[in-house]
């Protein structure tokens, strides 16, 4: 179900916690599984739950509580733009609009070529760098003016 590499990474997460507290590793394990699979299908969640010996529904609760777990297949690149107030004051909303217009999709949608999924995000703790865009959940792109967005998307081509 998951590659040996992913399992080794999950084992590293497990090693951080007391032996009887494997459950603590579920957030890390779901993240690792998601990176490998692209998204969290029910079977993936169940696999992770069984691997950590917790109830599948408990893992499902976690996978649905936290925003960054993707429970539907999405585009090759997930772009999350923060539009919360501090960012909005420095161009967050405008950056989002620019992306919508440029990609021709709304928030929560994926481009027809399956390349991009655009998501409206909440505060990422990087308001000083506004506008900010999170690329594929893990890479923070700062000061995303229209030119910076053009450049970033060009890199992703």
């Amino acid at each position: 179900m998951l590659s040996a590499e992913s399992l080794a990474k999950i084992d590293f997460e497990v090693s951080k916690y007391p032996p009887e507290q494997k459950r603590s590793a579920v957030m890390g394990a779901l993240r690792i599984a998601q990176v490998e699979k692209g998204w969290l299908a029910p079977e993936t969640i169940e696999f992770v739950a069984n691997y950590l010996q917790i109830a599948p529904v408990a893992a499902y609760e976690v996978a649905t509580f936290y925003n960054m777990y993707d429970r539907k297949p999405l585009g090759k690149h997930k772009l999350t733009v923060c539009t919360n107030l501090p960012c909005a004051l420095s161009g967050g909303v405008d950056a989002g609009k620019y992306l919508q217009q440029k990609l021709g999709i709304g928030y929560g949608e994926t481009t027809a070529d399956g390349k991009y999924t655009l998501v409206e995000g909440e505060c990422m703790g990087a308001c000083g760098d506004a506008p900010v865009m999170l690329l594929n959940n893990h890479k923070m792109c700062s000061f995303m003016t229209n030119e910076a967005i053009d450049k970033k998307l060009a890199e992703l081509e």
């Binding site: 951080k16 957030m27 890390g28 993240r31 509580f65 925003n67 777990y69 909440e122 505060c123």
Partner: peptide, 10 residues
């Protein structure tokens, strides 16, 4: 000391 990450929940 260990690091643990959140995943999107204020």
């Amino acid at each position: 000391l260990f690091a643990h990450h959140g995943y999107g929940a204020y």
